[in-house]
Design a binder for these strands. Structure first.
Length: 739
DNA sequence: AGCACGCCGACT
DNA sequence: GTCGGCGTGCTC
């Protein structure tokens, strides 16, 4: 086997073949990290397979050296990654290297490299001052400028391409302005302490019943998938922990995936306290070095349990017994930017490949998972009641249509009923969450009379109001309509346009309840590292009375003193231009409602909406998830949406609008011409953010019966439509988010 | 993605 | 006269 097929972290769809030098040939194995000459530079690559036949017509180069003694990726994980690359239509090298800590991507910044940082804050600017030590050394000044821009450099990187830099650096060290050290700085950031709920000593009957099959399957070392559907507060976490314990006791490993680690400090704390040094936490907030440390502990078998967000599904666990996906319905498991893979789906795949058990847990499982449970692909485990017989919170719906508006309160921030309950809650020294699902630019047109949003006739999704053009647009098929003066459905109602933000709400609450402590939790407010944790920690310690926020406030925290949750405008998510809008709304409302009444005081939820009669709202209020799923599945089937059809979203961008549109049409034509009768192409339409970073973006949505057809046509389109290098195309298989 | 080559404007 | 902008093309 004198040749190796190697994956390199470049956006090219193929592997590269290299010769094996004799000294390496004997020892090399698949999954190993190597250094290879690649064009004019050197790159790290990962050995995917070995072969005895060279490809024709290419001058091969030899592998330079082995970079790691052991394979970084096991044969089974490698198989999963290659499968994922094919499935998601992404280059194999990109797929493989996103599964590894970023330090392995390039061979610069070698492990154990010397890092450089500023010794202290060095003022920039005035180089003319006589006492400036850098007045007469422009090379040193330049080095300092570069160091100022980034917190951490390594020596080799900093000096590359500038032979004078090395001596200049030495001079700076002598002057005491910079420091060279062997390792990166702070390695274990201390998370703020969250009060965690008291340990549960005995399981409820329902919990015991759910845990049984999971433990049994783990014991059998066989693949099995379970959907754990447990209402909010029913003790799903305890089941995860016991199942993980089962794996760990027998010396095997487990992965716990959480939607976003910064939002789930309590869960992480619980896992830590249960499994102490056996736990490795992997998340994007870690520095490169910290992440590598955790990854190595797993690779060496020092830690058996990996906890993390989506990329933790690739954690290097040797004898994997269990994969748990908490809040499996959460859309963040599949982000559309970067590599659009779905961590939950890959967890299933990896479980099957490694004969491990997969547990998908949620109070509001995705329709895909429910369908799999109904058809028997997943075992369904149900926890129908909260622990300690605590009731689910009572949900009240407030109809915004029948509220007399105060002229300066046209945004319906707080209805009299919500304001009254908020006042009572604050009087009792209890806490409240106010939730507003705001998606910035996404506003919609709504009939003041029937409360219905204006929808696209073709696609049955809500039309999106575009402020600049004063028009309504369908983000699926692209049609543009003028804003009607009368509601097209009931023909009498006046149409009004909506826009409301968390800042407004915060200001309004502060004005009406002077003296209370409010915190805002949305993506603008929590830009910095650790800000979310800080706010949630203050909230948990009752240093904040009311939190106003977006989706972030809905995730799984458990604060017993929260007894009121207010949803300010449920219509916002109901009318997102997305076929999953009602599913998301049910999930969001149920999840945020589940934050209320977790303690002994019980809790209440108020949902404000223009559509109190809307099926989704009614079924949420009555906590009838199964009925909602049944109806929604029927609808999906009729309209040809997942889980009954497969979707592929294609985004194409180009600096010039006309060119972009022409290319997008050419791609769409490949699908239209080559597809079966059942295949549908919607678009191309301008993307919701049509102009982004100087590029015009178009998107099209393909609906098909099977995945094979989508794969075949996507490949055909990539080869037949010649894309100029300034055009960019992204395939998003099984898109979660059409925005 | 990098990194080269290659052809046109403002500076020692 | 050069330094340097980013368009285009290639990487086993």
């Amino acid at each position: 086997m004198p040749y190796a097929h190697i994956a390199i972290a470049v956006p090219l769809g193929n592997l590269f073949t290299y010769e094996l030098p004799p000294d390496i040939a004997g020892t090399i194995r698949c999954g190993q990290l190597v250094e290879v000459p690649f064009g004019k530079r050197r790159q790290t690559g990962l050995v995917v397979s070995l072969s005895s036949t060279p490809p024709a017509e290419v001058q091969l180069k030899p592998i330079a050296k082995l970079l790691e003694p052991e394979p970084l990726v096991s044969a089974s994980l490698l198989k999963v990654l290659l499968w994922a690359a094919e499935y998601y239509l992404v280059p194999p090298g990109e797929m493989i290297f996103t599964a590894l800590p970023p330090v392995f991507r390039r061979h610069t910044r070698k492990r154990g490299a010397k890092n450089v940082r500023l010794a202290r804050a060095v003022p920039g600017g005035d180089r003319t001052a006589d006492r400036d030590p850098l007045r007469r050394s422009p090379v040193q000044a330049r080095l300092l400028d570069r160091l100022r821009r980034s917190t951490e450099w390594n020596v080799a990187e900093l000096c590359r391409g500038d032979p004078t830099a090395r001596s200049a650096l030495t001079a700076l060290v002598k002057k005491g302005l910079v420091v060279i050290e062997q390792r990166a700085t702070a390695r274990s950031p201390i998370a703020p302490q969250m009060p965690s709920p008291p340990p549960i000593h005995s399981l409820t009957e329902a919990q015991t019943k759910a845990l049984g099959p999971i433990e049994q399957a783990i014991g059998q070392r066989q693949f099995a998938a379970f959907l754990l559907h447990g209402v909010t507060g029913s003790g799903k976490t305890e089941i995860y922990l016991r199942a993980i314990a089962r794996a760990v006791e027998s010396g095997r490993g487990a992965i716990l995936l959480v939607p976003e680690i910064s939002l789930t400090p309590q869960l992480v704390a619980r896992v830590r306290s249960r499994f102490s040094e056996h736990v490795a936490v992997l998340h994007s907030g870690l520095s490169g070095g910290e992440r590598l440390d955790e990854w190595r502990r797993l690779q060496r078998g020092e830690a058996l349990v990996a906890v993390g967000a989506r990329s933790a599904v690739f954690a290097p666990i040797r004898d994997l017994a269990l994969l748990v996906v908490d809040e499996e319905h959460d859309p963040s498991y599949k982000q559309s930017e970067r590599l659009p893979y779905h961590a939950r789906d890959l967890a299933i795949l990896r479980g099957r490949e490694e004969h491990a058990v997969v547990v998908l847990g949620s109070a509001t499982p995705s329709l895909e998972s429910m369908q799999h449970a109904y058809t028997g692909r997943y075992g369904l485990l149900t926890l129908g009641e909260r622990v300690e017989q605590r009731p689910l919170p009572e949900i009240e719906v407030v109809d915004l249509k029948h509220i007399t508006l105060h002229p300066d309160e046209r945004d319906h921030t707080l209805s009299p009923r919500l304001a009254e309950l908020l006042a009572q809650t604050l009087d009792r020294r209890e806490q409240a969450i106010l939730f507003l699902n705001r998606r910035g630019y996404s506003s919609f047109a709504l009939c003041q009379d029937c409360g219905e949003a204006i929808r696209c006739d073709n696609c049955s999704v809500a039309l999106v109001h575009h402020l600049k053009e004063q028009s309504l647009r369908c983000h699926y098929c692209g049609q543009i309509l003028p804003i009607p003066t009368r509601c097209p459905r009931c023909t009498v109602g006046r149409v009004s346009l909506f826009g409301l933000g968390t800042e407004k709400v915060e200001a309004e609450v502060a004005r009406r309840f002077p003296g209370i402590r409010i915190a805002r939790l949305d993506s603008d407010a929590v830009a910095g590292r650790g800000v979310i944790e800080g706010i949630m920690s203050r909230f948990a310690h009752q240093e904040v009375d009311v939190v106003v926020g977006t989706q972030m406030v809905t995730k799984g925290h458990d604060i017993p003193n929260v007894t009121l949750v207010g949803v300010l405008l449920a219509d916002l998510s109901l009318h997102l231009p997305d076929f999953r809008a009602t599913e998301r709304t049910f999930q969001l409302l149920t999840q945020v409602a589940g934050r209320s009444g977790r303690g002994i005081q019980g809790g209440r939820v108020v949902i404000q909406t223009f559509m109190p009669q809307h099926e989704t709202i009614v079924l949420t209020r009555e906590h009838r998830f199964d009925e909602f799923v049944r109806r929604e599945l029927t609808r999906r089937k009729a309209l040809g949406y997942p889980p009954f059809r497969r979707l592929l979203l294609i985004r194409l961008s180009h600096p010039e609008a006309a060119h972009g549109l022409r290319l997008a049409r050419a791609i769409a034509d490949v699908f239209r011409r080559g597809g079966s009768a059942a295949l549908q192409v919607l678009g191309p339409a301008p993307a919701p953010l049509q102009r982004l970073r100087g590029r015009y973006r178009f998107q099209m949505l393909i609906k098909a019966r099977g995945i094979e057809e989508l794969h075949r046509l996507a490949r055909l389109a990539s080869t037949t439509v010649q894309l100029p290098s300034n055009a960019r195309i992204i395939f998003d298989m099984d898109p979660q988010d059409m925005l």
